[in-house]
Design a protein around this nucleic acid. Sequence first.
DNA 1: AAGCATGACAACCGCAATTAG
DNA 2: ACTAATTGCGGTTGTCATGCT
Length: 514
Amino acid sequence: MSQMTNEVDNNVHYDDQTGSQLNDDGNGVGVVLKKGPWTAAEDALLVNYVQKHGEGNWNVVQNYSGLSRCGKSCRLRWANHLRPNLKKGAFTAEEERMIAELHAKMGNKWARMAAHLPGRTDNEIKNYWNTRMKRRRRAGLPLYPPEVLLQAFQERKHGQGTGEISDGDGGHRDFLKKNNYEIHDAIFDSLKENQGILPFLPDLPAISANSFLPNGLGSPPYCNLLPSTLPNHDHLQESTMSFIGSSELNSNRFYPFDHIKDNTSDKISESFGLYSPLDRGVSHGSICYSHSLSNGNSSTSKPTSEAVKSELPSLQIPETEFGSWGTSPPPPLNESLDVFIHSPQPPNALDSGSSSPLNSGLLDALLYQANTLGCSKNNSSDKSSNSSIATPGDRAECSALNMYETEWEDYADPLSPFGATSILNEHPVVSTNGNSWDEWELFQTFSENSADNNERLQSIDQVWTPKSENQSMSLLNFTLPDVLITSDWHELYSDHDSTNQAIMTEASDDISGQ
DNA sequence: AAGCATGACAACCGCAATTAG
DNA sequence: ACTAATTGCGGTTGTCATGCT
């Protein structure tokens, strides 16, 4: 890097600037070890050493090479920069897709991910992901492309989760599978991270709580959601019921966004964990409350803001804990669910009366989403009739949708394996050049100023067809167009809904089918 | 042009796991 | 079996470049 090139022959500068540390490995006590950026001369020394002695024994490098670096630093330098076959430069589209996919499966297992990306280092991947995630989070965008979510979900569902990608982290998965409690990491991760996948429901029909809770949690699909092996089922049910009771699900009919009619659209985003670009507060409830379940264990003793801090993607649970679950009674799961279920709601949530499924946690948000999708297919009249509700929410929803639509522009590259081509061919896009962020804003403005939402939603209804539903299940290669400034953008909208629907249908099937 | 925000990297730190004695 | 050393990993921080206001 340019940084490095500027550092050649300036040892003194960096010694003074970055300080030093004493060697603590006994090899040269009192020797001042250099820190900071490596110089070309140091690199040469290290390369020379490795060529002569091979990798390893890093702590003795300074003895043989004359380097004043600790072994750790040498190893890192070699691994990240000097070893042969390192691939430099920007990640390719394929690599980016791989990273998203791997992260959806593995979480922050950078080293494992690097193993699947020849020539790339864990540090590189980590930096890439963190930067990318920061950017996306700031923009309020979901971390994973829907097709990655769907694919991962399907793979997990069909027991081919590891497939060609073995993360070696099957411990907790085994546990999950054994307990028929297999919910894909990525789904929860995505929900937890920013839940961008949820808010882009095409519309928000009023649905009857009874329609998907015919007999409360004691009947499908909820009863099947619970691990059949749970010995403390009653307890869990009771807990879950109280959880449901805390929401508006116990009313005959609830309007998911009704309660936010009078609130700002931020509440929707907050409820679904969709970050507002303007508000990245770390204490957003949805993040906090989703954490316990997504982790599958109760980590709520810690400040929930940590969920944000740690950027936990997948089931980032110490494997020992899961391992112990496998050999000991499942109460931890109960507890975790219990904790999740009884997750304290922020006072304002209660005060505002927004104890809706949106605020009560990602589980019912997920289920709500899944069921809503089901309802939306069967009840277009409801859809249209309800498209008139919650104007502010609708706007927020629209915003979320818009974000989603432009979200995966990275994957809209015609060369991308996600294959934007077909979509782009099917749906003429007016503008498709370059980066779309500005265009997205333009589009958002367009959307917000466009004809009233009812009309838009009706259009969506019109373009919904069983065909698109069927297609949705084969949309693994579906890619969002780069830009959606198009006269018939609602058709794209509809296709996104298809993907979304596919995901949520999978989620619903997966949950109810367990 | 200056200041600021952000991105991209590189490197360090601490902890945990593994290995060697 | 125990301990220390080594290695690996993930989180975090620091620096520079770039773009925007």
